[in-house]
Every structure is written in structure tokens, then in C-alpha cells.
Simulated scan of single mutants.
Amino acid sequence: MSVNLQKGQKISLSKEAGGELSRVTMGLGWDAIKTGGIFGFGARTQSVDLDASCVLFDEKDQPVDVVWFRQLKSRDGSIVHTGDNRTGAGEGDDEQIVVDLARVPANVKSLVFTVNSFTGQNFSQVQNAFCRLVNAANDREVARYDLSVQGAHTAQIMAKLYRHNGEWKMHAIGENGVGRTFDELLPQIAQHL
């Protein structure tokens, strides 16, 4: 059973998954913006390019690597982005970042996941946006965070995976921000490390 995360909530990934997780997928989904039309006739869709990113931080809270649409794999190969979706068309996850937790280098203390509207629409215009954490071994959803706090922001710091006493935990941050790419959020992310 999936946990519907609330802003600021922390969970143990192994407890929620019913055992230790070794590979997780952070999925991001959204729908294109529907405009105009009457009773569904003449309606058009406007593409939305949301981007999922993962920033890797060390013990000193310094970024050591990033996985995003311009670098689809971490330098060590433990984290892989499946590719950039520029429209939001289709069902389910539009973008995914797959993390092999067992292969994440020991010097990496935390992984922070962000969403940015590269095309600049604010989230009040984006429909059905969500992120979720899936146990990649059995494709079971472990946790879901609906990006339901709508407003005139163009980015969100979604969640942080971090090591604590030898196990991975998740903190659902859910903090709104502004920026087309993850690097514009780095000063804000630093407050959560």
C-alpha cells in the first residue's frame, strides 16, 4: 500500500516497502494544458515541459553530481534519468529517475529531487502533477506526493532521500520555488540539507 505523503513528512523507505529497498524509481507525471473549446469541442492542448532532476550532496552539503535532462546519468552510473518528456502527453510517469541505492557512492549523504517548469508555466496551469517513489524490484508504489499546492510558482523541491543510521529515509519537502532549472533552486535546497 502506498503512503500519500504530506509536505514535510518523513518515512523510512525500507519499512514502507516491507523490506530493504535496493532500487527505487522517482516518477514524475503531469498532463498538457487544455484550453478553449465548448463541451470538449475545439479544445486544444498546450505542451508543458516539466523536468525532474536529482542533485547528489556529500557530507558537507555540497553538490557533487546532478542527473537531469542535460546529463541523464550520474558519473558513477548509480542514478539514471530515462529521458526528457517535453509535452506531458500520455498516461503514468512522464519522466523517471532510477536510483540503484546500493551503488550510490558512500560519500553521498543525500539525493534531492526537484521539478522545474522549463517552459515557464506556473503550476496553477499544470494539471494532475505528481511524483512518486516506486520499488523498482517489483514495480510497487511505495510513496506518492501529489503536487497539489497550486500557485504561481514554476518549481518545487519535491523530496530528499538521505542516509540515516545505515538506512535510506525519505523526506517529502514539497516546497515551492521559482526557476526553469534545478540550479536556480540550490540556495533554497541548502535550507533542507
Rank of each mutant, 00 (worst) to 15 (best):
M1N: 11
S2N: 11
V3I: 15
N4V: 14
N4D: 13
K7V: 14
I11K: 10
S12T: 12
S12F: 10
L13S: 02
L13V: 14
K15F: 13
E16W: 05
G18W: 12
G18M: 11
S22D: 01
R23C: 00
T25A: 13
M26T: 15
L28T: 03
D31G: 09
A32H: 06
A32I: 01
A32L: 04
I33K: 15
K34I: 14
T35R: 14
T35P: 00
G36C: 08
I38D: 13
G42Q: 08
G42I: 01
Q46G: 00
V48K: 12
L50A: 09
D51E: 09
A52K: 04
A52T: 14
A52N: 12
V55M: 12
V55Y: 10
K60Q: 14
V64L: 02
V64R: 08
D65W: 05
V67D: 06
R70H: 10
L72P: 03
L72S: 04
D76R: 05
I79C: 03
V80D: 03
G83N: 04
D84F: 07
R86M: 14
R86V: 13
G88H: 08
G90T: 02
D94A: 02
Q96Y: 01
Q96L: 09
Q96K: 15
I97V: 15
R103E: 08
R103I: 00
P105K: 06
N107W: 02
L111H: 06
F113N: 07
V115T: 15
V115Q: 11
N116I: 12
S117Y: 13
T119L: 07
G120E: 09
N122A: 03
F123D: 01
S124F: 03
V126C: 09
Q127D: 14
A129E: 13
C131Q: 10
V134H: 05
V134P: 01
A136W: 08
A136C: 02
A137Q: 11
A137N: 09
D139G: 01
D139T: 03
D139F: 06
D139L: 06
V142K: 12
A143C: 09
R144T: 08
R144I: 08
Y145M: 15
S148I: 10
V149Q: 15
G151H: 12
G151C: 08
T154M: 04
H164S: 15
G166P: 04
W168G: 00
H171W: 14
G174E: 04
E175K: 14
V178W: 11
G179A: 07
R180D: 07
T181K: 12
E184G: 06
L186N: 05
L186V: 13
I189E: 01
I189P: 00
I189V: 14
Q191I: 01
